[in-house]
Design a protein around this nucleic acid. Structure first.
Lengths: 198, 198
DNA sequence: GTGCGACTGGGACGACCGTCCCACTTCGGT
DNA sequence: ACCGAAGTGGGACGGTCGTCCCAGTCGCAC
C-alpha cells in the first residue's frame, strides 16, 4: 500500500466514513467497514485515530463545517419576499432530492450525538451552523425583496431551520415530492409574514 | 420466576424495549438490555420472539398504533383558526417537553426503519398515522373556527406533520422553548392561511 | 395423580466488534 | 550509506452481540 502521512489518512478516513454512514447508516459504520471503504488496513485506522469515537466526532465536525447548501443563494429577479423564500426552499429540496442519503446521514449523526452527554454539543453546533446559514440566506432574501425582519433574525432563522428539517424527514419517509413542495410553499408563506416593507 | 404465557410476555418485552430505546437509544436496545429491563432471562426472549428484529418491528407497530398525542384536541373557545391551531401545536409542544425521550425514540425508530428496505413500510405507516391524527385535529379545528380547508385535507395534514417534526428535532437539539413556540406560531400562521371562511 | 405441553434458567455457540501488538518496510535527513 | 522516525500489515485479544440448546419445572386436562 502507498504510504500516506497520518493527517491525509485522517481526511481519507473521514471521507470514507461519510460514504459508509450515508450508504449504510451509522450503525453499520464499523472500523472495518470504514477501513474497507478507504482501502486501508485496520492498523492504519488506529494509527491515524485513537478510537472510533474520535473519528465519528471529527466526521461530525468536518461535515458540519463544510455544510453550505444555503437555502437561498440566488434571488428570484423581481420576486417578492415570499417568492424568493419559496424559491430558496425549493432549491434546498432539489439538493435533498439529489443526495437524500447525505441528509439522512446528517440526521443520523445528530441523533447519534444527542445520545451521549459529551457529544451533545456537536449536535448543538450542527444546528447552530444550520441557523447561521439560514440567517445568511434570510438576510439576502430580505435585502433583495426590500424588506426588514420584524424580529431578531436569529429567531426567524431558527424557524426556517425547523421547517427545513421537517420537510427533510417527512420527504425521506414518503418521498412525496408534491407534499414537500407544499411544505416549502407554506413555510415560505409563514416566514414572509415575519417581515415588513422597508 | 413467575410463569407468564408467551403473548403477555411479548407485550411486556415490547414495553421494556420502548423504555430501553427511550432511555438509551435503539443502538443500546440489545436483547440482554431489554430482557434485564423486563426482569426476564434471555431464553424467555427467544421463547416469545423468533428474533430481535421481530421485537423491534412489533415495537414500532405497537407504538405507532398507540400514538395519539393529537395536536388539537380541545379548541380554544372563541378563538379564530390560527389561534386554535397554535394552541394545538403548543399543546403538542408541552407533551414533547413532558416526555422528550419518547419523541426522540420515535425519531430513532423512524431512522432505523428507513435503513432496511423490508422495514421501510413501517416508517411510511408511522408517518401515515401521524398524518391521520393531524387530519383529525385539523378537521376539528376548522369546524370550531367555522372555516373550510381550501385544498384536500390530506395535504394540509402532511404540512402539519412536517412542521411538528421540525419543531421536535430542533427543540430536542437546543431545548430552546421560546424558539419552539415561535415555530408553533409560524406554523399555525401558515396553516391557517390554507383555509377560507365557510 | 399423572402425563404432556407450556414455560424457565443457565450456559454455550459462532460472529463481529473496537482495539492492540509487533515484526516489517519505507522514507527523509545526515 | 545509514539510521531513526513514520507508516504498514496481519493476526490476535477480550468483550458483547444475537441466537440456540437442553435439562429442568410448573400447571392444567384427564
Amino acid at each position: 500500500m502507498a504510504r500516506i502521512p497520518a493527517p491525509e489518512r485522517r481526511d481519507a478516513l473521514v471521507e470514507a466514513a461519510l460514504r459508509v454512514v450515508s450508504r449504510r447508516g451509522i450503525a453499520q459504520a464499523t472500523t472495518r467497514a470504514i477501513v474497507a471503504e478507504a482501502g486501508m488496513s485496520l492498523a492504519s485506522f488506529h494509527y491515524a485515530f485513537d478510537s472510533r469515537d474520535e473519528l465519528i466526532d471529527e466526521l461530525i465536525t468536518t461535515v458540519v463545517a463544510r455544510e453550505q447548501h444555503a437555502v437561498i443563494p440566488e434571488p428570484v429577479p423581481g420576486g417578492d419576499l415570499r417568492e424568493i423564500l419559496e424559491a430558496g426552499l425549493l432549491r434546498y429540496f432539489e439538493h435533498l432530492r439529489g443526495d437524500p442519503e447525505h441528509e439522512q446521514a446528517m440526521l443520523e449523526l445528530t441523533h447519534y450525538a444527542l445520545r451521549s452527554p459529551e457529544r451533545h454539543p456537536l449536535a448543538v453546533a450542527q444546528y447552530a451552523r444550520y441557523a447561521e446559514l439560514a440567517a445568511h440566506s434570510l438576510e439576502i432574501a430580505a435585502s433583495h425583496a426590500g424588506t426588514t425582519w420584524d424580529r431578531p433574525m436569529e429567531q426567524v432563522a431558527r424557524v426556517l431551520v425547523a421547517f427545513t428539517d421537517g420537510l427533510t424527514i417527512t420527504w425521506l419517509v414518503d418521498r412525496d415530492d408534491d407534499a414537500a413542495r407544499a411544505v416549502a410553499h407554506a413555510a415560505a408563506d409563514a416566514l414572509s409574514r415575519m417581515a415588513e416593507p422597508r
